[in-house]
Amino acid sequence: MPNQSTNQLINYLLSNGDNALIIGHRNSEWCGHGPVLEQDIAITNISLDLIGQARNFYQYAASLIGNDSNEDKLAYLREAIEFKNCLLVELPRGDWGFTVLRQFFFSAYQFYLYQQLQQNKDEQLAAITAKSIKEVTYHLRWSSEWVIRLGDGTEESHSRIVKALDELWSYTSELFLPAPYEEKMGIDISGIKDKWIQKVNEVLCEATLTAPSPKNEHTGGKQGRHTEHLNELLKDLQYLQRTYPGMEW
Protein backbone atom coordinates (compact mmCIF):
# COMPACT_ATOMS: atom_id res chain seq x y z
CA MET A 1 0.00 0.00 0.00
CA PRO A 2 1.63 3.29 -1.09
CA ASN A 3 2.18 5.80 1.71
CA GLN A 4 0.48 9.18 1.85
CA SER A 5 3.00 11.20 -0.12
CA THR A 6 3.17 8.52 -2.82
CA ASN A 7 -0.60 8.61 -2.97
CA GLN A 8 -0.49 12.33 -3.49
CA LEU A 9 2.00 11.91 -6.30
CA ILE A 10 -0.13 9.21 -7.92
CA ASN A 11 -3.18 11.45 -7.84
CA TYR A 12 -1.17 14.32 -9.19
CA LEU A 13 0.13 12.22 -12.07
CA LEU A 14 -3.36 10.96 -12.82
CA SER A 15 -4.69 14.51 -12.82
CA ASN A 16 -2.09 15.61 -15.37
CA GLY A 17 -2.55 12.46 -17.42
CA ASP A 18 -6.34 12.84 -17.39
CA ASN A 19 -6.14 16.46 -18.55
CA ALA A 20 -3.94 15.44 -21.47
CA LEU A 21 -5.97 12.35 -22.37
CA ILE A 22 -9.36 14.05 -22.28
CA ILE A 23 -8.43 17.16 -24.26
CA GLY A 24 -6.47 14.92 -26.63
CA HIS A 25 -9.59 12.82 -27.16
CA ARG A 26 -11.75 15.90 -27.70
CA ASN A 27 -9.32 17.17 -30.33
CA SER A 28 -9.18 13.76 -31.97
CA GLU A 29 -12.90 14.08 -32.66
CA TRP A 30 -11.89 16.54 -35.39
CA CYS A 31 -10.07 13.79 -37.28
CA GLY A 32 -11.63 13.76 -40.74
CA HIS A 33 -13.80 16.79 -39.87
CA GLY A 34 -11.23 19.60 -39.72
CA PRO A 35 -12.13 22.82 -41.53
CA VAL A 36 -9.36 22.20 -44.07
CA LEU A 37 -7.03 19.29 -44.67
CA GLU A 38 -3.97 21.05 -43.27
CA GLN A 39 -5.71 21.98 -40.02
CA ASP A 40 -7.23 18.53 -39.73
CA ILE A 41 -3.70 17.19 -39.64
CA ALA A 42 -2.53 19.93 -37.26
CA ILE A 43 -5.23 19.27 -34.66
CA THR A 44 -4.78 15.50 -34.83
CA ASN A 45 -1.01 15.92 -34.43
CA ILE A 46 -1.75 17.89 -31.29
CA SER A 47 -4.09 15.12 -30.12
CA LEU A 48 -1.34 12.57 -30.55
CA ASP A 49 1.14 14.73 -28.64
CA LEU A 50 -1.31 15.04 -25.76
CA ILE A 51 -2.27 11.37 -25.69
CA GLY A 52 1.46 10.58 -25.69
CA GLN A 53 1.88 12.83 -22.66
CA ALA A 54 -1.01 11.07 -20.94
CA ARG A 55 0.71 7.73 -21.52
CA ASN A 56 3.89 8.97 -19.83
CA PHE A 57 1.97 10.13 -16.77
CA TYR A 58 -0.09 6.92 -16.61
CA GLN A 59 2.93 4.65 -17.00
CA TYR A 60 4.67 6.37 -14.14
CA ALA A 61 1.51 6.35 -12.00
CA ALA A 62 0.97 2.64 -12.73
CA SER A 63 4.52 1.84 -11.61
CA LEU A 64 3.80 3.56 -8.29
CA ILE A 65 0.38 1.96 -7.84
CA GLY A 66 1.95 -1.44 -8.34
CA ASN A 67 -0.08 -4.66 -8.35
CA ASP A 68 -0.98 -5.17 -11.98
CA SER A 69 -1.90 -1.59 -12.78
CA ASN A 70 -0.96 -0.34 -16.22
CA GLU A 71 -1.57 2.61 -18.52
CA ASP A 72 -4.42 0.89 -20.37
CA LYS A 73 -6.33 0.10 -17.21
CA LEU A 74 -5.92 3.67 -16.03
CA ALA A 75 -7.25 5.07 -19.29
CA TYR A 76 -9.92 2.51 -20.13
CA LEU A 77 -11.23 1.05 -16.91
CA ARG A 78 -11.74 3.93 -14.52
CA GLU A 79 -15.15 5.48 -13.94
CA ALA A 80 -15.82 9.17 -14.57
CA ILE A 81 -15.76 9.87 -10.85
CA GLU A 82 -12.16 8.60 -10.69
CA PHE A 83 -10.98 11.00 -13.38
CA LYS A 84 -9.22 14.10 -12.07
CA ASN A 85 -9.20 16.32 -15.15
CA CYS A 86 -10.46 19.88 -14.93
CA LEU A 87 -13.88 20.57 -16.43
CA LEU A 88 -12.43 22.80 -19.14
CA VAL A 89 -11.01 19.87 -21.11
CA GLU A 90 -14.12 17.66 -21.09
CA LEU A 91 -16.53 20.16 -22.67
CA PRO A 92 -17.73 19.12 -26.15
CA ARG A 93 -15.47 20.37 -28.90
CA GLY A 94 -17.94 22.97 -30.20
CA ASP A 95 -16.96 24.82 -33.35
CA TRP A 96 -13.41 25.52 -34.49
CA GLY A 97 -13.32 28.76 -32.49
CA PHE A 98 -14.29 26.93 -29.30
CA THR A 99 -11.71 24.22 -29.88
CA VAL A 100 -8.79 26.57 -30.56
CA LEU A 101 -9.67 28.90 -27.70
CA ARG A 102 -9.94 26.00 -25.26
CA GLN A 103 -6.61 24.69 -26.55
CA PHE A 104 -5.07 28.10 -26.08
CA PHE A 105 -6.26 28.38 -22.47
CA PHE A 106 -5.08 24.87 -21.71
CA SER A 107 -1.75 25.08 -23.54
CA ALA A 108 -0.88 28.35 -21.81
CA TYR A 109 -1.62 26.66 -18.47
CA GLN A 110 0.41 23.56 -19.39
CA PHE A 111 3.29 25.69 -20.62
CA TYR A 112 3.79 27.59 -17.36
CA LEU A 113 3.07 24.49 -15.30
CA TYR A 114 5.62 22.33 -17.15
CA GLN A 115 8.16 25.13 -16.93
CA GLN A 116 8.04 24.61 -13.18
CA LEU A 117 7.59 20.86 -13.19
CA GLN A 118 10.66 20.24 -15.30
CA GLN A 119 12.65 21.34 -12.25
CA ASN A 120 10.63 19.23 -9.82
CA LYS A 121 12.54 17.23 -7.27
CA ASP A 122 10.83 14.09 -8.52
CA GLU A 123 13.17 13.20 -11.36
CA GLN A 124 10.71 11.15 -13.37
CA LEU A 125 8.08 13.88 -13.30
CA ALA A 126 10.75 16.42 -14.24
CA ALA A 127 11.85 14.27 -17.18
CA ILE A 128 8.31 13.75 -18.49
CA THR A 129 7.50 17.45 -18.44
CA ALA A 130 10.91 18.50 -19.82
CA LYS A 131 10.29 16.21 -22.78
CA SER A 132 6.74 17.48 -23.30
CA ILE A 133 7.36 21.19 -23.04
CA LYS A 134 8.57 21.47 -26.64
CA GLU A 135 5.28 20.05 -27.85
CA VAL A 136 3.35 22.37 -25.56
CA THR A 137 5.33 25.36 -26.81
CA TYR A 138 4.14 24.59 -30.32
CA HIS A 139 0.54 24.00 -29.21
CA LEU A 140 0.59 27.37 -27.50
CA ARG A 141 1.97 29.09 -30.56
CA TRP A 142 -0.45 27.36 -32.92
CA SER A 143 -3.53 28.04 -30.79
CA SER A 144 -2.52 31.66 -30.05
CA GLU A 145 -2.31 32.37 -33.73
CA TRP A 146 -5.71 30.86 -34.37
CA VAL A 147 -7.28 32.91 -31.58
CA ILE A 148 -5.78 36.07 -33.10
CA ARG A 149 -6.78 35.04 -36.60
CA LEU A 150 -10.40 34.42 -35.66
CA GLY A 151 -10.73 37.33 -33.24
CA ASP A 152 -9.20 39.80 -35.67
CA GLY A 153 -10.76 38.13 -38.69
CA THR A 154 -14.18 38.46 -40.23
CA GLU A 155 -17.37 39.51 -38.53
CA GLU A 156 -18.47 35.90 -38.31
CA SER A 157 -15.19 34.55 -36.95
CA HIS A 158 -15.09 37.35 -34.39
CA SER A 159 -18.63 36.74 -33.17
CA ARG A 160 -18.00 33.01 -32.91
CA ILE A 161 -14.90 33.37 -30.81
CA VAL A 162 -16.59 35.94 -28.60
CA LYS A 163 -19.27 33.35 -27.95
CA ALA A 164 -16.63 30.70 -27.19
CA LEU A 165 -14.88 33.12 -24.84
CA ASP A 166 -18.12 33.72 -22.95
CA GLU A 167 -18.72 30.00 -22.58
CA LEU A 168 -15.17 28.98 -21.68
CA TRP A 169 -14.12 31.77 -19.37
CA SER A 170 -15.95 30.49 -16.31
CA TYR A 171 -14.11 27.16 -16.63
CA THR A 172 -10.62 28.66 -16.47
CA SER A 173 -10.47 29.48 -12.76
CA GLU A 174 -10.44 25.78 -11.84
CA LEU A 175 -6.98 25.51 -13.36
CA PHE A 176 -5.62 27.59 -10.50
CA LEU A 177 -7.64 26.17 -7.61
CA PRO A 178 -5.32 23.55 -6.14
CA ALA A 179 -6.84 20.20 -5.26
CA PRO A 180 -5.54 18.64 -2.01
CA TYR A 181 -3.13 16.41 -3.95
CA GLU A 182 -1.63 19.44 -5.69
CA GLU A 183 -0.74 21.33 -2.57
CA LYS A 184 2.48 19.59 -1.66
CA MET A 185 3.88 19.18 -5.15
CA GLY A 186 6.20 22.16 -4.83
CA ILE A 187 4.41 24.21 -7.48
CA ASP A 188 3.78 27.91 -7.26
CA ILE A 189 0.23 27.95 -8.63
CA SER A 190 -0.29 31.66 -8.11
CA GLY A 191 2.90 32.28 -10.11
CA ILE A 192 1.49 30.16 -12.93
CA LYS A 193 -1.76 32.05 -12.71
CA ASP A 194 -0.06 35.45 -12.99
CA LYS A 195 1.87 34.40 -16.10
CA TRP A 196 -1.21 32.77 -17.58
CA ILE A 197 -3.30 35.92 -17.14
CA GLN A 198 -0.57 38.03 -18.68
CA LYS A 199 -0.23 35.74 -21.70
CA VAL A 200 -3.98 35.40 -22.17
CA ASN A 201 -4.51 39.16 -22.01
CA GLU A 202 -1.71 39.71 -24.49
CA VAL A 203 -3.22 37.35 -27.04
CA LEU A 204 -6.82 38.44 -26.47
CA CYS A 205 -5.76 42.05 -26.91
CA GLU A 206 -4.11 41.25 -30.23
CA ALA A 207 -7.23 39.33 -31.20
CA THR A 208 -9.35 42.42 -30.43
CA LEU A 209 -11.10 40.49 -27.65
CA THR A 210 -11.67 41.29 -23.98
CA ALA A 211 -11.85 38.79 -21.17
CA PRO A 212 -15.36 38.74 -19.70
CA SER A 213 -15.80 39.74 -16.08
CA PRO A 214 -15.89 36.63 -13.88
CA LYS A 215 -19.34 35.16 -13.36
CA ASN A 216 -20.19 31.89 -11.70
CA GLU A 217 -17.21 29.58 -11.79
CA HIS A 218 -17.38 25.91 -12.69
CA THR A 219 -15.10 23.70 -10.62
CA GLY A 220 -14.93 20.20 -9.17
CA GLY A 221 -13.41 18.18 -11.98
CA LYS A 222 -10.10 17.77 -10.19
CA GLN A 223 -12.00 16.10 -7.33
CA GLY A 224 -13.98 13.83 -9.65
CA ARG A 225 -17.16 15.91 -9.86
CA HIS A 226 -17.67 16.06 -13.58
CA THR A 227 -20.21 17.26 -16.11
CA GLU A 228 -22.36 14.78 -17.98
CA HIS A 229 -20.08 15.38 -20.96
CA LEU A 230 -17.29 13.29 -19.45
CA ASN A 231 -19.59 10.26 -19.20
CA GLU A 232 -20.47 10.64 -22.84
CA LEU A 233 -16.83 10.97 -23.78
CA LEU A 234 -15.77 7.91 -21.76
CA LYS A 235 -18.53 5.82 -23.28
CA ASP A 236 -16.85 6.42 -26.60
CA LEU A 237 -13.24 6.25 -25.38
CA GLN A 238 -13.69 3.10 -23.29
CA TYR A 239 -16.20 1.26 -25.43
CA LEU A 240 -13.83 -1.28 -26.92
CA GLN A 241 -12.09 -2.32 -23.69
CA ARG A 242 -15.36 -2.53 -21.81
CA THR A 243 -17.08 -4.56 -24.49
CA TYR A 244 -14.14 -6.83 -25.26
CA PRO A 245 -11.98 -6.85 -22.10
CA GLY A 246 -8.30 -7.41 -22.77
CA MET A 247 -8.76 -6.83 -26.50
CA GLU A 248 -5.53 -5.93 -28.32
CA TRP A 249 -4.78 -4.59 -31.77
Partner: peptide, 15 residues
Protein backbone atom coordinates in the same frame (compact mmCIF):
# COMPACT_ATOMS: atom_id res chain seq x y z
CA UNK B 1 -7.11 40.41 -46.70
CA UNK B 2 -10.84 40.59 -46.00
CA UNK B 3 -11.33 38.75 -49.27
CA UNK B 4 -9.56 35.76 -47.80
CA UNK B 5 -11.65 34.87 -44.78
CA UNK B 6 -9.88 32.30 -42.62
CA UNK B 7 -12.90 30.05 -42.33
CA UNK B 8 -16.41 29.75 -43.60
CA UNK B 9 -17.73 31.02 -46.89
CA UNK B 10 -15.63 28.62 -48.91
CA UNK B 11 -12.78 27.87 -46.50
CA UNK B 12 -9.56 26.73 -48.10
CA UNK B 13 -10.98 27.31 -51.56
CA UNK B 14 -10.26 30.98 -50.99
CA UNK B 15 -6.83 30.48 -49.51
Amino acid sequence: SSQNPPLGGGGAGLW
